[in-house]
């Protein structure tokens, strides 16, 4: 047993992070919020880097890696707040022409919502009668659809991976702020009340990490449901605590914390309800 990242997995993680830092850094994020839209050039660049074709066999022009590697890439996407229907396009690689290379943007309804409908080239699943809504997350345009649909376990796990990235990022942002912001003559992070918020953020993120990575290895439905619950909790509570640590600044549009929280809320709607995952895990106890 060696439940740690391999050298190759670390390199992949660093590579994706470097690409996203370069192509979707703080300025690009700001610009995307001001003018929502899908950056087709970035999408093709992701395709060229193998983001969508990661799990496709090499014989089919893919990278030939597995679910653990996909989870690491999606964790980085979550961390960077990368917009777009990443999961649907990734899962369509190999079956929808052009998805693997990032030429074709694919979306799919999930949990009564469909994201990026107006920008997508292909919609997989039943999006009949889709009605646009004013999306709470400025980086995720949404339509409502009548059809609830079945949750794809892989989509659930990839969403959990993105939530994990968000949880980790939220903890980092909170710690950065707590180290530098001074009140009463010392960094606010020297106060235990703030310190303990940050510690709890890390504990939730690291517990979720173990669950998400393990589910990527086993692909067991109960493991995936567990990963989803813990990653949702780590992301949603983590971003809220991050906002709290930022104080008044956290409540502003300018500070990026609200974008992480809103995305965490948006993702937690995916993959069926929370209660569904809880029921899967309850049923597993008496199986």
């Amino acid at each position: 047993m060696r439940f740690q990242l391999t050298e190759d997995q670390r390199a992949l993680q660093a590579g994706v992070r470097e690409l996203l830092d370069r192509r979707f850094g703080a300025e690009a994020l700001r610009a995307a919020v001001d003018e929502p839209g899908l950056d087709r050039a970035l999408w093709r660049e992701l395709g060229a880097a193998g983001f969508f074709a990661l799990r496709l066999p090499e014989a089919d022009g893919g990278v030939g890696l597995g679910l653990p590697e996909a989870v690491l890439a999606f964790e980085e996407a979550g961390r960077a707040l990368l917009p777009g229907p990443l999961t649907a396009t990734h899962l369509a690689a190999g079956s929808v022409p052009g998805a693997a290379t990032g030429e074709t943007v694919v979306t799919a309804p999930d949990g009564g919502l469909v994201e990026w409908l107006a920008w997508a080239d292909v919609v997989l699943g039943d999006a009949d009668g889709a009605v646009p809504l004013r999306s709470l997350d400025p980086l995720t345009p949404l339509h409502r659809v009548a059809h609830q649909g079945e949750a794809d376990p892989l989509a659930v796990l990839l969403a959990a991976a993105e939530q994990l990235g968000t949880a980790t990022r939220a903890c980092e942002l909170a710690v950065q702020h707590a180290r530098t912001r001074e009140q009463f003559g010392q960094p606010v992070g020297a106060f235990q009340a703030v310190k303990h918020l940050c510690a709890d953020m890390l504990v939730r993120a690291e517990t979720a990490r173990a669950a998400v990575y393990a589910a990527a290895v086993t692909e067991d439905p109960a493991d995936i449901a567990a990963a989803r619950l813990l990653a949702d909790e780590a992301a949603v509570r983590g971003t809220r605590d991050c906002l709290q640590v930022h104080g008044g600044m956290g409540f502003t549009w300018e500070c990026e914390v609200h974008l992480h929280l809103k995305r965490a809320w948006a993702r937690s709607q995916r993959g069926g309800g929370i209660t569904e995952s809880e029921e899967v895990l309850a049923a597993d106890l008496v199986a």
Binding site: M1, R2, T207, A210, A227, L230, E278, E279, L281, A282
Partner: peptide, 22 residues
């Protein structure tokens, strides 16, 4: 659902143990 959530919790703690041991 409370028991379901605890199942998630202890599955994760078992994986965290394996992670720490590794």
């Amino acid at each position: 659902r409370r028991l379901g959530r605890l199942n998630a919790e202890f599955r994760a703690l078992w994986r965290l143990t394996q992670w720490n041991v590794s």
